[in-house]
């Protein structure tokens, strides 16, 4: 699936602190072209900081971030559209920054917008005249219009309803597969991670660190709802994930569905735990950073 290109984002031994608050510690991972990597963890565990470091929006203090992708685009939690520009001009913003001529950037923006489900008449509207879903499409189009090789997503779909989410997932996956895009997304929604990614990195707070990794070996496009539900449930049963989110351990006595428990995580499923959870990192109940 991946490997036709040698482009990759390497993060090695990355640590970060705001003044004396250690937010990230010893982060290692890699995103290759054509690969979707999800960073999962509770709110305030340093996910956004990590993404900003990867995007070069923050200065790296300790460790290494090597981005070998030719171009990188960022999509934020909120659409963050410029309210005084029409949808079309918002999409074309990054092209304008890159010095593309007006006629061409409008042509490219329009073409992509139509593929992402925006209508011609929406493109002349200002952001406040568009619904939340339409605004998210515009934000996605703005990120994709530069044809980036690496896409960084900061929980961009968290405010949308289920139907809209599904549609944007589909559009994103189609685009990702077609362009062989590397994607690093952060989310606190396990289902979203299972739905979209090839590799899930589970983070725990205080300081933010990666406690385990899951590989998903079925292509994202061929995952059906049943598969996603089953594996989300399975992921939720693992000790590391529960500890990270501050959930109490699974009660053994409860009649659990087949596949529950760590022992089953590797059996006949597409979910493979590759780094066993670090010994229960002295997690005190529901402790979270921030």
């Amino acid at each position: 699936m991946n490997g036709s290109s040698r482009a990759a984002l390497h993060v090695r031994g990355l640590s970060h602190a705001f003044v004396r608050d250690e937010v990230l510690s010893g982060i290692d991972f890699r995103v290759r072209a054509g690969e979707v990597v999800a960073l999962v963890g509770p709110s305030g565990c340093g996910k956004t900081t990590l993404l900003h470091l990867a995007a070069g929006l923050l200065k790296v203090q300790d460790g290494q971030v090597d981005n070998h992708f030719a171009s990188t685009a960022f999509m934020f939690q909120q659409p963050r559209l410029l309210p005084w520009k029409t949808a079309l001009d918002n999409i074309a913003l990054s092209l304008k920054a890159a010095g593309v001529r007006r006629a061409e950037r409008h042509f490219r923006a329009r073409e992509l917008a139509l593929r992402l489900g925006l209508a011609h008449r929406d493109l002349d509207k200002f952001p406040h005249q568009l619904s939340g879903g339409m605004q998210s499409r515009v934000a996605l189009a703005r990120a994709l219009v530069l044809a980036p090789e690496l896409l960084l997503l900061d929980e961009p779909f968290s405010a949308l309803d289920v139907g809209l989410k599904e549609e944007l997932y589909r559009l994103l996956l189609a685009h990702q597969a077609e362009r062989h895009l590397g994607v690093l997304m952060i989310t606190h929604d396990l289902m979203e991670a299972v739905r979209l990614s090839d590799l899930i990195l589970v983070m725990a707070p205080a300081p933010g660190r990666i406690v385990c990794r899951f590989e998903l070996d079925r292509a994202a496009a061929s995952r059906d709802d049943g598969w996603v539900y089953r594996h989300t449930a399975e992921l939720l049963q693992t000790r590391a994930v529960r500890a990270s989110f501050g959930l109490p351990p699974v009660v053994a006595a409860a009649p659990s569905p087949p596949g529950a428990g760590r022992a089953h995580a590797q059996v006949d499923t597409g979910l493979r735990l590759i780094v066993p959870p670090v010994p229960p990192v002295a997690v005190a109940g529901g402790k979270r950073c921030g």
């Binding site: 934020f76 909120q78 963050r80 920054a97």
Partner: peptide, 16 residues
Amino acid sequence: NHLRGMAEAFRLPRRM
């Protein structure tokens, strides 16, 4: 601030 952050992420030149 969000808009300023967005503008930085999209590498808008100073003039823009």
